[in-house]
Design a protein around this nucleic acid. Structure first.
Lengths: 211, 211
DNA sequence: ACTTATTCGGAACATCAGTTCCGCTTAGGA
DNA sequence: TCCTAAGCGGAACTGATGTTCCGAATAAGT
C-alpha cells in the first residue's frame, strides 16, 4: 500500500513547496503553508524549539490539525526552518571564501562575527548547531559538515597568512563562538556585548600572545 | 490549621540535616536522605537537571514517595545539590584570593581553569550558572553574586598587575568560560580539549594583542 | 449552482514528568 | 515483646505537550 503524499513532498522542501509538486496545492493550503513557516521562523528564533506547537499554530492563525497536515511532525517543521538557516549561513561562508579582495584574517573575522550574530539571533539555529556535535544522526549533519569545511577553508587561509595561530582547530573556533552565543543569550547581552565577546575569542586565536 | 513539617526543616539544609533538627531523624530516614543526595549528585552531574525524578529515586534504591518526603519538590533537591557545589567553588575562589604567594595573573588563570573543570564536570552546576543571569529570583542568586564578587577581586588584581586588559568585564570572563564549558560539553571534548579552549579565552583577555 | 476531493479545526487521545495520597512497614522507646 | 509515631513505597492524579481523527467548511472544476 503506497501512500501518495499530495502537496508537501516530504519534509526537505523548505523552499517553494508548491512549485514542484505534481498537483499544485489548493490556494488556501498554500497560504497556510507559508503562514506556518513564517510563524515558526519567528517563534523558533525567539523562544527556541521548546515552544509548544500550539503556539506556532495560533500565531499562524491556523488550527493544530492544519499544522500537522503540512508538517507531519514537530521535528519536520523544525528541520524545515533550520535547514533554511543553515543554507543562509553556507551562502555567507561561500561569499567570504569567494571574495578574492579580502585578506584571510579579515575574512575569517567578518565571517565569525556574522556567524555569531545569526546564531544568537535565531535560538533554534543555535540549538541545532549546539547539538550537532552529539547527535550525529541529525538531519542537519550533512549541512553542518559542509559548513565546517567552509570554515576550515577560511581558517587555513588565515593560518597561512599568519593571522591566527596554527594550533587552533576549526572545532575549537566553532565551539568558542557557539559558547559565546550561548552565554550572551542567557545573560541579557545585546548585540554590542556579543561582539565584544567575539572580539576576545578572536584575540585569543591570534599568534601575538607569546604564551 | 498549621502543618508541622517533621523531619526536613524545609529545603535549605544541604548539609547535615539531621544534626540541627529538633528531633533527630530515624536511622533509616537519615540513611535514605544521604543516599538520595548522593544519587542526585551523581545523576545531575552526568545528565543535568532534566532527568526524571524517578531515575534518582531508583538509583538511590528508594521509592518516589520517600524521595518526596525528604525533598518536597524536585527543585528543592536540585537546590540542595547546586548550593553545595557553589559553596565548593566559593572555597576555591577564596583560596585563590588568600594565597599571598601567587601572582595575580596566575591566580586568575588557575581559578578559571578549576572553575571550568567543575562546571563542565557537573552538568547541573553549569545549568544553574548558565541561567543565573536570567532568573534573578533564583535561589542561587545570592551565592552566585558572592562568587562573582570574588572573581571580580581576582580580575582587578590581574588588571593592576598588567596580566589582563582593563576593558574586560567580569561578566565577560564568566560568560566566555561558561560558554566554553557548554560547547565542550556538547561536543565530545575531553578534559584536555576543554583546557585548550580555556587557554584561548585566557589568551584573549591578555593585553598583548595590539588590536 | 452543484459537486466533490481537499483542506480545516479542534476535541480527544497518548505519553511523560511532577506530585499527592494512603495503606503498609518498621525503628526504637516503654 | 509490644506499641506507635515516623517513615516507606508506589499506584494514582495533574498538567503539559505531541499527535490523531473525523465531521465541517471550502476551493475549484463542470
Amino acid at each position: 500500500m503506497v501512500e501518495v503524499r499530495t502537496g508537501s513532498t516530504g519534509s526537505l522542501d523548505a523552499v517553494a513547496p508548491h512549485e514542484l509538486a505534481a498537483k499544485p496545492m489548493r490556494a488556501d493550503a498554500q497560504r497556510n503553508h507559508e503562514r506556518i513557516l513564517q510563524a515558526a521562523e519567528e517563534i523558533f528564533a525567539l523562544d527556541g524549539v521548546m515552544v509548544p506547537i500550539d503556539i506556532v499554530a495560533e500565531r499562524a492563525g491556523v488550527g493544530i490539525g492544519t499544522l500537522y497536515r503540512h508538517f507531519p511532525t514537530k521535528e519536520s517543521l523544525y528541520e524545515a526552518i533550520v535547514l533554511t538557516r543553515l543554507n543562509e549561513l553556507l551562502r555567507v561562508a561561500d561569499d567570504a571564501i569567494d571574495d578574492a579582495e579580502a585578506e584571510p584574517g579579515a575574512a575569517l573575522d567578518a565571517f565569525l562575527r556574522e556567524f555569531a550574530r545569526q546564531a544568537s539571533e535565531k535560538q533554534d539555529l543555535f540549538e541545532a548547531l549546539g547539538q550537532a556535535g552529539v547527535d550525529i544522526k541529525s538531519r542537519f549533519a550533512e549541512r553542518v559538515d559542509e559548513l565546517m569545511s567552509r570554515i576550515d577553508t577560511l581558517r587555513q587561509r588565515a593560518v597561512e597568512s599568519g593571522a591566527i595561530r596554527s594550533d587552533v582547530e576549526t572545532s575549537d573556533i566553532l565551539n568558542l563562538i557557539m559558547g559565546t552565543c550561548h552565554a550572551a543569550g542567557h545573560s541579557r547581552a545585546d548585540e554590542q556585548g556579543l561582539q565584544r565577546l567575539v572580539s576576545i575569542v578572536i584575540a585569543g586565536i591570534q599568534p601575538t600572545s607569546p604564551m
